[in-house]
C-alpha cells in the first residue's frame, strides 16, 4: 500500500465526520431564513465550540479506553467559577481565567488519580466525582447569576475582520496548543497505546500510567475552557444539573460521530470536533424546518441511537463468531 492509503485509513473516521458536518451545514444554511451570512456562521460557531471543547475533553479519555462521565459537571463548575472570578480590571480577569483553568486541571487530575492510582472503574468513579463537582457548582451558584468581563467576552464571541468567528479561532488555538503537542508527545502515544492494548503497551515499556493521567488531566482543562466560553456566551453562571448531564451525553455522541473508538486507541480530537459541530447542526436543523421545539430531545436521541448503532456494521465483517466477544 502507498503512504497516502495508510493515512486515509487512519483518518477515515475524521473525514467521515467532516463530510457529515459539511453536508448538514450546507442543508442548514441553505434553509436558514437569513442564508449563509457571517451572522449565521457566528451564531452556529458559538454554539458549536462549546460542545467541541467538551467533546475534545471526552476524546482524550476515550482514547485511553476510559470514559469521563464528569466532563459535563466540570464544565458546569467552571462556568459557575468564571461567573465569580473573570471580572474586573485586565489583571484581575487574567488571574480569574488562570484560576478557572487551574480548577479544571485539578478536577481532571483528581479523576485521573482516583482512576489510575486508586484503580477504580472510570464509570463509577467519574459519576461520583461528577456529583462532587456539581455540589461545588451549586455551592458557588445556588441561584443563577454573576457576571463576566464583557469586553473579553464580546471579543472572544465576536468576529475578526467582520467575517471570521473568534470562537472558531480560539478553538483552533486550543487544538494547536493542547491537542497537537499532546498527541505527538511520548505521553500521547502512551495514551493511544494504553487504549489499544494496555498489556502490550506495558510490556513495551510505555509510560502508560503517566500517559493516562495526563489524558484525564488535560480533559479537565479542556472542559474548563468550555465552561469559560459558556460564561462568555451567557454572561452568567448557572449550576444546572440537566445541562451538565446533557453535555456529558452529547460529548459521547460527538466522539462516536467523530470516529473515535469507544474501545480506545483509535480516533482523534479533530474528528470529535467535527462530530460535535455536526451533532449541533443536526439538532438545529429542526429549527430551520420550523418543527415544534418539543420534538428536539426525541430527534437528538434518535440521532444518537443511529450514530451508536453505526458501529454495529463491523459485525458483518466478523468471520469467527468468537470475535463477537472482545
Amino acid at each position: 500500500m502507498k503512504d497516502w492509503r495508510y493515512w486515509l485509513a487512519e483518518q477515515r473516521g475524521t473525514l467521515f465526520a467532516f463530510g457529515i458536518f459539511i453536508v448538514m451545514f450546507a442543508i442548514y444554511s441553505a434553509n436558514h431564513p437569513a442564508g449563509f451570512t457571517a451572522n449565521v456562521v457566528q451564531t452556529a460557531a458559538n454554539k458549536g465550540v462549546l460542545l467541541a471543547f467538551v467533546a475534545m475533553a471526552q476524546t482524550l479519555v476515550v482514547i485511553t479506553a476510559g470514559i469521563d462521565l464528569s466532563v459535563g459537571m466540570i464544565f458546569t463548575l467552571t462556568n459557575c467559577m468564571a461567573s465569580w472570578l473573570v471580572i474586573g480590571t485586565g489583571l484581575e480577569t487574567g488571574f480569574g481565567v488562570l484560576a478557572v483553568l487551574g480548577t479544571g486541571l485539578l478536577c481532571g487530575a483528581i479523576n485521573g488519580a482516583i482512576i489510575i492510582y486508586g484503580r477504580l472503574q472510570p464509570i463509577v468513579a467519574t459519576i461520583a466525582t461528577g456529583a462532587v463537582f456539581f455540589g461545588l457548582a451549586l455551592l458557588l451558584r445556588p441561584v443563577p447569576g454573576g457576571s463576566v468581563n464583557e469586553d473579553l467576552a464580546d471579543f472572544l464571541t465576536g468576529r475578526f475582520f467582520g467575517v471570521v468567528p473568534a470562537s472558531l479561532v480560539a478553538l483552533l488555538v486550543v487544538v494547536l496548543v493542547v491537542w497537537v503537542p499532546f498527541s505527538r508527545s511520548e505521553f500521547g502515544r502512551a495514551a493511544y497505546a494504553a487504549g489499544s492494548s494496555e498489556m502490550a503497551a506495558y510490556m513495551s515499556g510505555v509510560p502508560i500510567r503517566r500517559g493516562k493521567f495526563l489524558a484525564y488531566t488535560l480533559a479537565g482543562l479542556l472542559a474548563a475552557i468550555g465552561g469559560l466560553f459558556l460564561t462568555f456566551f451567557t454572561y452568567t453562571g448557572e449550576a444546572a444539573y440537566a445541562s451538565g448531564n446533557a453535555y456529558t451525553l452529547f460529548s459521547i455522541a460527538a466522539v462516536v460521530l467523530g470516529g473515535v473508538s469507544l474501545f480506545g486507541g483509535k480516533g482523534s480530537a479533530i474528528g470529535a470536533i467535527f462530530g460535535a459541530l455536526a451533532f449541533r447542526t443536526i439538532g438545529d436543523l429542526l429549527f430551520v424546518f420550523d418543527f415544534d421545539p418539543l420534538w428536539q430531545p426525541l430527534f437528538q436521541g434518535v440521532i444518537l441511537l443511529i450514530a451508536v448503532s453505526l458501529g454495529a456494521f463491523a459485525l458483518f465483517r466478523v468471520r469467527n463468531r468468537l470475535e463477537w466477544f472482545l
Binding site: 484503580r119 477504580l120 468513579a125 462532587v132
Partner: peptide, 24 residues
Amino acid sequence: PEAGRQIIYGVVIVAMLLLYGRAP
C-alpha cells in the same frame, strides 16, 4: 443543603470504593 449532600455523597462513594472496590 443540596450542594453539601451531593459533595458528601460523591466523596463517600469514592472513599468506600477505595476501601474495597479496587481492581486487583
